[in-house]
Every structure is written in C-alpha cells, then in structure tokens.
C-alpha cells in the first residue's frame, strides 16, 4: 500500500455481491422443489406434473406471471452461479479468476443466459391470459 493509493468503495464488486446474494436466496428457496417435482416425481409418474404433457405445460408457460417468475429465477440464479464459480476457480489456485477479463467472461456469461432466457420466453408460447 503506497501513500498515493486512495481507497474507494468498489461499486462493481458491490453490485456483483448484491446479485450473488439475491440469487443465492432465490435458488435456495425455489430450486429444490423444481428439481424434485419436475426432475424426479414427474418423470417417475408419482404425481402428475405440468411438463409431462404439452397442453398443460403450454397453458402454464403462456401465463405472463410464469414467464416473469422464470426470468427472475433464472436471471438471479445465473449471477449467483457465475460469482460462485469465479471464486471457486480462484480457490483452486487460478488468480486470473479475479482479473477483469474473468469478470467480463463470467458475469457476461450470466447476462448472455438472461438474454437467451428472455428470447426463449418471448418466442415460446405467446403470452395469453387464459
């Protein structure tokens, strides 16, 4: 630390952490039930699940509230994942994971997933209020 070094709150890291923390809470609250019901109970036929039939799934996905819900879930989740995996890479002894290019790649990747999500949600089953 030299004398000219003037410390400053890192707004970028503050933002990343904000997204990471929100994504962490959202995935903690919502992920297990999706995986359990859609990934295990539905395919095994234990209970009827919306995504087991085209009609029921299309009906649900057409709902704008569902689209918004999925965007919030996936959007925050991928910022959370990007943040954790970037720090995990640093923990494995890759200091470059803390560099600016790494930040662009990881958080940029999260932004790309969000854009793809928006595109998929807008182009799959038009919005309907039925």
């Amino acid at each position: 630390m030299n004398a000219e070094h003037r410390p400053r709150t890192a707004i970028d890291h503050l933002f990343f952490w904000f997204m990471f923390a929100n994504g962490g809470v959202i995935t903690a609250l919502l992920m297990p039930v999706h995986v359990l019901v859609q990934g295990i109970l539905g395919p095994l036929g234990v209970v009827p699940v919306v995504d087991q039939h085209y009609d029921t799934y299309a009906n649900v996905i057409g709902n704008p509230l569902v689209k918004l819900y999925l965007l919030v879930l996936i959007g925050f989740a991928f910022f959370h994942f990007a943040h954790r995996l970037r720090y995990l890479l640093a923990d494995f002894g890759v200091p470059a994971a803390k560099s600016l290019p790494a930040q662009v790649i990881f958080y940029g990747g999260a932004v790309v997933v969000i854009l793809v999500t928006i595109w998929i949600l807008l182009t799959t089953i038009p919005i309907s209020f039925g």
């Binding site: 003037r6 410390p7 709150t9 890192a10 970028d12 503050l14 990343f16 923990d91």
Partner: peptide, 15 residues
C-alpha cells in the same frame, strides 16, 4: 473506514 473496507481487496475478496 468504509472505502478501505469496501475496496476490491477488502470485504469482497471474502467468500
């Protein structure tokens, strides 16, 4: 204190 603590090499380094 906040600028020192909330620098890039401050609290944000901690996982």
């Amino acid at each position: 204190r906040l600028p020192v603590v909330a620098e890039a090499e401050g609290i944000w380094e901690c996982s």
